Simulated assay, not measured.
Amino acid sequence: MTIDLIFKIAAVGILVSVLNQILKHSGRDEQAFITSLAGLILVLFWIVPYIYELFETIKKLFTL
């Protein structure tokens, strides 16, 4: 995992929170929810390969 991924996740979090606040104050709660959900899915797509790699490493460790 690189530091670049952490910065990307932080940027998505900041962007989603700002958009969420703007949409909630303008009365568009449904679009604010969809924006939050889209940010979560995007970050999960970035993180899933690292989680898979972690589980593969753990599996290799215990099958000595």
Rank of each mutant, 00 (worst) to 15 (best):
S26I: 06
A32C: 12
Q31A: 14
Q31I: 14
L40T: 06
Q31R: 15
G39S: 05
L40C: 12
F7D: 15
S17W: 08
Q31P: 10
K24S: 14
F7Q: 13
W46C: 03
D29N: 09
S17T: 12
I34R: 08
N20K: 13
W46S: 01
V48K: 00
V43D: 00
F33L: 15
F33M: 14
L15V: 14
I51L: 15
A32R: 02
L5M: 02
D4Y: 05
I41G: 09
I14N: 14
S36M: 07
I14Q: 12
T35A: 08
L5G: 02
R28S: 10
I22P: 04
V18H: 05
L19I: 05
Y52A: 10
V43G: 04
F7W: 15
S36I: 07
W46G: 02
I47G: 00
E30C: 00
A32I: 05
A32T: 06
K8L: 11
T35M: 07
Y52C: 10
I51M: 08
D29C: 03
L42A: 12
I34H: 06
T35E: 04
K8H: 07
Y52S: 09
I41L: 11
D4M: 15
Y50M: 08
I41Y: 07
V43E: 00
K8D: 08
F33N: 15
V48P: 01
V12S: 01
E53S: 13
K8E: 08
S26F: 13
L40V: 10
F7L: 12
S36T: 07
